[in-house]
């Protein structure tokens, strides 16, 4: 199709209302292949909602979303197909507590990708090694630290060979000393050329990894730009105010 965008993610005029609450009021953005877009903003600004609309965890009230040239619809087959290509990492990890780390990473490979047990296990071990905890394969989530749990969650998403990775405040629920181990994994992913959309409050990560930074407030994009310009010379008064509050 001619009008299908060539970007990995293309969002056109996205609107999302929760009852009377207008979470997102017309947001348009694109993420090109291999690029990292970091979305920042105060809580309640709609940044997580935008992310959750991309894999249809929230169904948009209006607007269009294209993922890898495929338009997102309400059709279940379409949604499941897109979700298998889009990995997401949550603030609360959401590991499956009844399965080991390896079991967590294997489940969707077997059920969705229909991989054989041996193949799924081999890939799971590769991904655990990739996030730096190959020795935790047979451990249950409750016995892992927060940082380790989040790394298993990243490995679980990566094992599906996603074309895009979404991160919804991946370090916000972590103790301070565990944030770095997760950010390091994300940084390595970005360097490897993974297409990423990241909602975070970690400005260090945004500065180092982002190709573009998007600042949202009250359901709208206030400002966007490269890290240098965004942090060095923001145009909008609201951006300056926000940055002055979080950069001490």
């Amino acid at each position: 199709m001619d009008d299908a965008p060539r970007d990995m993610i293309a969002i056109k005029n996205l609107v999302k209302h929760f009852g009377h609450v207008q979470a997102v009021n017309g947001v348009s953005l694109t993420v090109a292949q291999g690029k990292v877009v970091v979305i920042i903003g105060p809580s309640g600004s709609g940044k997580s909602t935008v992310l959750r609309c991309i894999n249809h965890l929230e169904s948009p009230t209006g607007g269009e979303i294209w993922v890898d040239g495929i338009k997102l619809t309400h059709d279940h087959k379409n949604i499941n197909a897109i979700r298998a290509e889009v990995g997401i990492v949550f603030q609360q990890f959401n590991l499956f507590p009844h399965l080991t780390a390896l079991g967590n990473i294997m489940l969707a490979q077997r059920v969705v990708r229909k991989r054989k047990r041996e193949e799924a296990a081999r890939i799971a071990r590769q991904q655990l090694a990739r996030v730096g905890i190959p020795e935790k394969a047979d451990v249950y989530p409750a016995q892992l630290s927060g940082g380790q749990q989040q790394r298993v969650a990243i490995a679980r998403a990566l094992a599906m060979n996603p074309k895009i990775m979404l991160f919804d405040e991946p370090t916000s629920a972590l103790d301070p000393e565990m944030i770095k181990e997760v950010l390091d994994v994300m940084l390595a992913l970005a360097k490897e050329g993974m297409t990423m959309a990241v909602v975070t409050h970690e400005m260090g990560f945004a500065r180092n990894a982002a190709d573009e930074i998007i600042f949202m407030d009250q359901g709208l994009i206030v400002e966007r730009g490269t890290p240098d310009i965004f942090f060095g010379n923001p145009r909008e008064e609201r951006t300056r105010l926000f940055l002055s509050q979080i950069l001490h």
């Binding site: 197909a81 298998a84 590991l95 009844h98 969705v112 990708r113 599906m160």
Partner: peptide, 24 residues
């Protein structure tokens, strides 16, 4: 979050029920 995690990995509603929600 359990249902969201399962669905976001591409599982259908019933697969998520069968493998993630019901065992717990």
């Amino acid at each position: 979050g359990q249902m969201e995690a399962a669905r976001s990995l591409g599982m259908s509603y019933f697969q998520a029920m069968r493998y993630v929600i019901l065992p717990q």
